[in-house]
Amino acid sequence: PTAVAYVLSSKYDVNFSSFGCYTRSLEKLPEKYKLAIVQAFFDDEGYVHDSNIQICSANKKMLLFIKRTLENVHIHTGKLGSYRDYYRKDNSISKVFYFCVLAESVSEFKRLVGFVSPKKKQYLDLILKIRKRGKYTQGNVREIILNELANGPRTAREISLKAIITAYNLRKCYLYPLEKEEKIKRFGKKPGKGGGVLWCLQ
């Protein structure tokens, strides 16, 4: 988003009081530039859930601009919500705003906005594949899990991309039962910030 602000301010005369802040001149931009801004924010602040896409920001005006831009191209979004997040340097608590792109508009979001981030692109594709695939039998998914783990430890997210099932359902319906059967076990966490739980064969 900061890079987008620099380009808009220098090339398209969009004046920002501080980079990343909403300004009314954004509303006058052509639609393709608005959607490019939306993509930049989703790449940075967006998250692909099991059935929808969410974006969060402390900048309420900017988030409302993004929401309006999506609705104007018939990408339906949920209500704007908020939660208290972290303490600032002055000891006040930051308020973070968020909204979701509804499940019914995920395919249109991919067509008009999408992600540059490889991981987010993968998870977005997973949501769409789940809708297209037929029903799996329980045996199919168990076999995929065990075959994947035979090649080394994996997170639920990583296995879900192969099994074409949401990470939540994979954990609830397959990983936890297989753990109880002592066929698989937890193997610590994947290195890096926010690394998921790794699973491996017993």
Rank of each mutant, 00 (worst) to 15 (best):
G139H: 11
F187C: 14
K180Q: 07
E143R: 15
I184P: 04
R171W: 01
R84H: 15
Y47W: 14
L149Y: 10
K172H: 06
V48S: 08
N147H: 11
Y83P: 00
S94M: 15
L102T: 11
L112S: 05
D125R: 02
K61F: 08
Y86M: 00
Y47I: 12
H76M: 06
Y87T: 12
E148H: 01
K79R: 13
R111W: 07
R186N: 00
K162S: 15
I53E: 02
R68S: 15
R154I: 01
R154E: 09
I75Y: 02
I53H: 03
I130C: 15
K172W: 05
C100F: 09
K132R: 12
K60H: 13
F109M: 04
R154H: 13
R88M: 13
N169P: 01
L112V: 02
V113P: 00
S51C: 11
L175V: 05
R142D: 06
V116H: 14
Q54N: 15
Y123S: 03
P118A: 10
K60A: 13
G114F: 10
S92C: 00
K135N: 09
F115Q: 01
C173W: 12
L170Y: 11
E158T: 11
L124R: 04
I75D: 00
K135P: 12
E143Y: 01
S107V: 05
A103R: 13
A167M: 04
Q122M: 08
R186G: 09
R157K: 11
V73W: 06
K162E: 15
V73C: 08
K61R: 14
S117L: 02
G78W: 05
A58R: 06
I75V: 13
N151I: 00
R133A: 07
K119S: 14
C100R: 14
G152A: 03
F187T: 05
G46R: 13
H76R: 14
F97R: 02
T77L: 01
I66P: 01
H49W: 03
K185M: 08
I144E: 00
K185I: 12
E181S: 13
G78F: 07
Y83R: 04
E143I: 00
K185L: 10
T166C: 08
C173D: 15
K79E: 11
H49R: 14
N59S: 14
E71L: 08
N59R: 14
K121Y: 03
S57L: 03
R111D: 09
K119W: 08
I93F: 11
T155R: 06
S57A: 07
E182Y: 09
S51L: 06
L178C: 10
I165W: 10
G78I: 07
V141K: 05
R111E: 13
E181N: 09
S160V: 02
I75G: 04
V101D: 08
L146N: 05
K180P: 00
T166P: 01
E108Y: 11
S57E: 06
A103E: 15
F115K: 00
S94Y: 02
L102Q: 10
S92Q: 12
Y123W: 08
I53W: 03
K79N: 13
V141T: 13
S51H: 12
L124C: 09
E45S: 10
S94G: 03
V101K: 07
R157H: 09
G152I: 05
A167Y: 03
D125F: 04
K119F: 07
